[in-house]
Nucleic acid binder design. Structure first.
Lengths: 181, 181
DNA sequence: CTTTTCATGTAAGAAGTTACATGATTGC
DNA sequence: GCAATCATGTAACTTCTTACATGAAAAG
């Protein structure tokens, strides 16, 4: 069976909030939802053309070849709602860090502790970033309508909880490692 | 710049623990490290042939065309250690669930609560599975040498912490949603 | 006037999934 | 004897990333 092209729906979702250019879409990914999503130009532009051909989006009158402003069509909105309604499907996780870690049993203790403390550091930095994003959101920066606030806050909140869990995990495992043999 | 073929290193890592067939490698992925890694046959077999050509792995004498037992070579082991030493590189996260969730502000409350409770259920099931895996590990099932125990336990432990965080998050957000307007 | 940001795209290739095809061996 | 598991692979395809190329508009 077909693979699901998630980029189509990500773009559709973003355009369901505001109309905008490919560039705007990229920016939205890199700021508002960077926490749990990413897209790159090499993918966005071709998919925009697909969506246009399928009639799920359209170009606004204000568009020029230099700046194409897209908006979602009625068909697109219906298609998007259909997608929203289907359950999110199993996502196999892949952690390169854990892959490295699990095969590190032969390294010396110092090297493993460094791996863990680097990983911890990365998550501390990430936590700071998320907390800043959260503050920005609470201050009502960005043009967020109140009804959407929870829907932007919640994913960030999950990011924070997971990041904290990762930091705790690092502490726990570093402790266990230091005690061992 | 080259993309990193992670499958190469996953296979190399598995073969650094025990020699085995492509089928064994798949099984190892589906059981021992399924928590944070996955591979499929359509990728494993071609990559095994690449690794063989590169001289990073070899076929054992016991091999037949029907059952090829691979083991890591000295070159392969060195290459693997080199890879282990480099830091794990940024991994962009992508959560289809959060993508759906963040664009759900227009759905009615009931539908959103169902999304969340489905997601919660999924994580509860996952938690059960992880806790079973943890027990199996503690009982010393599988042929785990003591030095490797922590390196199998720890990734599972992170899985458990993250899963619990997700469950807590669902409770928190469902609560917030029920209170609102 | 110079740098940064805005803006659109293509080409090449890597990475990963799914479906298909085939048959031996083991356990019941 | 039959079903499940073991075992290997290919073909077609989708998805995604990286690098390259170009140039307008805004900000300093």
């Amino acid at each position: 069976m077909a693979l699901k092209n998630k980029t189509r729906y990500a773009i559709l979702g973003i355009l369901s909030i505001h109309s905008g250019t490919g560039y705007d879409i990229k920016k939205y990914c890199d700021t508002v939802i960077s926490n749990f999503w990413n897209e790159n130009f090499g993918h966005i532009y071709p998919v925009l053309n697909q969506l246009l051909e399928d009639g799920w989006i359209q170009t606004d009158e204000s568009s020029s070849p230099r700046k194409k402003v897209y908006s979602i069509t009625e068909t697109g909105r219906q298609e998007f709602l259909r997608w929203l309604a289907e359950p999110a499907g199993y996502q196999p996780e892949r952690s390169e860090f854990l892959l490295k870690f699990t095969f590190s049993s032969n390294l010396d203790k110092k090297a493993i502790l460094r791996m863990l403390s680097d990983y911890r550091k990365m998550h501390c930095d990430r936590l700071d970033k998320y907390q800043l994003m959260q503050k920005d959101l609470q201050k009502g920066l960005k043009d967020v309508v109140p009804e959407r606030e929870l829907f932007l806050y919640a994913p960030l909140r999950l990011g924070i909880l997971n990041t904290r869990a990762a930091i705790d995990w690092c502490d726990e495992i570093m402790m266990a490692l230091e005690k061992s043999n």
